[in-house]
Simulated scan of single mutants.
Amino acid sequence: MSLLTALEDGVAVLTLNRPEVHNAFDDALIAALTRAYESAIADPAVRAILLAANGASFCSGGDLNWMRRMAGYSHDENLADAEKLGRLMQIIDTAPKPTLARVHGSAFAGAIGLIACSDIAVAVPEAEFAVTEVRIGLIPAVISPYLVRAMGVRQARRYFLTAERFSAEAARTLGLIHEVVPAADLDTAIARHLKALKAASPAALKATKALVAAVDQPLSEAVIADTARRIADQRASADGREGLSAFLEKRKPNWGQA
């Protein structure tokens, strides 16, 4: 199974379980995550939702086979596909229950969106991050509202444009990660946060999340729809198709002019 789910002492633990591909996600995993978050939100026994991963990486971004399929998608198919990822991000971001991310290894591309949507994110010092889309002729459209909100516009410009890797400590400074702890202390840190959350009133936690969203001017349906359209446009563009083809064929892309 690509996603493992468990209820542990009031915590819905969702574990990415594709270690052979560094937990790269595809349409099936996106659908599984969407169902798992929706189920955890609806379950009165769940007090908090924890996203974790098996293997060497948290998530390396998009799965190669999924990208191969996307390379042949029509614009409408790309739009429908992007809207599903956008829906997942929105569900995590607006969940009325606390959401946490336990991060180790690599977290690239869309994986950073999952982290930015979570209420609390803890990583190990060895974790690496990158917003890699431009290297294959794409744009980080669907995850962009959450990353820009977390990092700020100025930093987002740099990391979106360069696709450079940055460390866990840099991610903490940027606001993507709340805490960086040694690997041996990662579960202890997560348990500490969960203990604090479970000591609070569930109704108050829900109301507090709604309060933060209200004062921060939440994302609109129009913005979410626009990001899906933008990535669908880019995927179907000449550079989007060339970038994906070059990436899959392990060659240098031949970019057109903007």
Results as ranks from 00 to 15, higher is better:
39 S>G: 10
31 A>E: 13
43 D>S: 08
63 D>G: 06
67 M>E: 13
67 M>D: 09
69 R>Y: 09
51 L>D: 08
53 A>H: 06
63 D>N: 13
44 P>T: 11
31 A>G: 05
55 G>A: 09
45 A>R: 14
35 R>Y: 06
62 G>L: 14
60 S>L: 08
69 R>F: 06
52 A>M: 12
63 D>F: 05
42 A>H: 09
56 A>W: 03
70 M>S: 11
45 A>W: 03
61 G>F: 02
55 G>E: 06
53 A>K: 03
48 A>Y: 03
67 M>L: 15
59 C>M: 15
34 T>F: 02
62 G>M: 11
61 G>R: 07
46 V>L: 07
40 A>H: 02
44 P>I: 11
36 A>T: 06
48 A>P: 01
62 G>D: 13
60 S>H: 07
56 A>Y: 02
57 S>A: 14
67 M>F: 13
40 A>S: 12
44 P>D: 14
57 S>R: 04
38 E>W: 02
49 I>L: 07
57 S>Y: 03
32 A>I: 02
65 N>T: 13
67 M>R: 10
47 R>A: 06
58 F>E: 00
68 R>M: 13
39 S>V: 10
44 P>C: 10
60 S>C: 12
59 C>T: 13
56 A>T: 11
47 R>Q: 12
66 W>S: 11
72 G>C: 06
65 N>A: 14
38 E>H: 06
35 R>E: 14
62 G>N: 12
34 T>M: 05
33 L>T: 00
49 I>M: 09
58 F>G: 00
62 G>R: 01
65 N>P: 00
68 R>D: 14
58 F>Q: 00
59 C>F: 01
53 A>T: 01
42 A>K: 11
54 N>M: 12
71 A>E: 14
55 G>P: 02
59 C>S: 15
50 L>N: 04
49 I>D: 00
54 N>T: 12
68 R>P: 04
53 A>P: 00
57 S>M: 03
32 A>G: 09
38 E>A: 13
58 F>I: 04
56 A>L: 09
37 Y>L: 10
50 L>I: 11
64 L>A: 15
68 R>C: 09
56 A>G: 04
67 M>S: 10
70 M>N: 07
52 A>Y: 04
38 E>G: 01
64 L>S: 13
40 A>I: 01
54 N>K: 12
33 L>Y: 01
58 F>N: 00
47 R>T: 05
34 T>K: 04
64 L>Y: 08
49 I>W: 01
39 S>D: 15
58 F>W: 05
69 R>H: 10
37 Y>A: 04
44 P>E: 09
71 A>C: 12
51 L>H: 06
60 S>F: 02
39 S>C: 08
54 N>R: 14
43 D>F: 06
32 A>R: 02
69 R>Q: 15
63 D>W: 04
56 A>N: 08
32 A>P: 01
63 D>Q: 10
58 F>C: 03
54 N>E: 15
52 A>I: 08
68 R>K: 15
32 A>Q: 12
43 D>H: 08
52 A>H: 08
36 A>N: 04
61 G>I: 10
32 A>L: 10
37 Y>K: 03
43 D>L: 10
59 C>R: 04
50 L>D: 00
33 L>A: 00
43 D>W: 02
33 L>F: 07
51 L>Q: 07
37 Y>P: 01
55 G>F: 08
52 A>T: 15
47 R>C: 05
61 G>L: 08
50 L>F: 11
65 N>F: 12
57 S>K: 03
44 P>V: 10
66 W>R: 07
